[in-house]
């Protein structure tokens, strides 16, 4: 009866193996590099194959892999993709297929075979591609900052930590929220200056 009990309780048996898909999903939600790499290894061969079948160049296929990984991670982080007991690669493949489909749509009027993709329903490839260039510029601006600035901006805008948490956990050399904010503000100012030097003076 133990067998029956375990399955009706809905709880994982103590000492049972954790769900590997769940573990991977959790690591992806923290954007852990090894987990991203594992997902990349899982989807890359399939995406390359589908891209080739769709007539895309190899370098486009590589970019598709990065796009699919990025959108999957972002969807996990903003809660659009919640864990559903399947491997996150299924979602990432859905994203990749939509991107391939979009690519074909812009190239020729009719597409075959790739229209009926499973997931995700709320992902709009056109919007994503429109904003991609702007985000690439921000990445270049970020590359020009020193490590301290990058770290301060990362803690706030990537890890989304509160200033007090950053101070309490001694994640930087700053000991007060005032000094932390002041330095981060300087970093943002520097980034905005670099944007202006790059010819970006307004919202782009």
């Amino acid at each position: 009866m133990t067998f029956f009990k375990n399955f009706t309780s809905g709880k994982q048996e103590e000492g049972a193996q954790p769900n590997p898909n769940r573990a991977l999903f959790d690591q992806l939600s923290r954007a852990e590099a090894p987990a991203i790499r594992a997902l990349s290894d899982k989807i890359t061969p399939d995406i390359r194959r589908e891209a080739k079948r769709a007539g895309l160049r190899p370098q486009d296929a590589e970019e598709l892999v990065s796009d699919a990984l990025f959108i999957t991670l972002k969807s996990i982080r903003n809660g659009k993709f919640q864990f559903q007991d399947y491997h996150p690669a299924a979602y990432a493949m859905g994203v990749a297929r939509k991107l391939i489909s979009n690519h074909l749509r812009t190239r020729k009027p009719q597409t075959e075979g790739l229209e009926n993709v499973a997931a995700p329903s709320d992902f709009n490839p056109e919007n994503y591609l429109k904003n991609k260039e702007r985000k690439a510029i921000v990445r270049q601006l970020l590359d020009q900052l020193g490590s301290t600035c990058r770290q301060l901006l990362a803690l706030k805008y990537f890890e989304q930590l509160k200033d007090q948490e950053i101070i309490d956990q001694q994640l930087t050399g700053f000991t007060t929220t005032g000094s932390l904010k002041s330095k981060r503000s300087q970093c943002l100012k520097k980034m905005a200056e670099q944007a202006r030097l790059a010819g970006i003076t307004e919202v782009f």
Partner: peptide, 16 residues
């Protein structure tokens, strides 16, 4: 608004 995305993209590139 774009900083978080830029860093996420960087993380993807690093992992790959």
């Amino acid at each position: 608004e774009d900083l978080g995305d830029a860093m996420l993209w960087e993380r993807v590139s690093t992992a790959r």
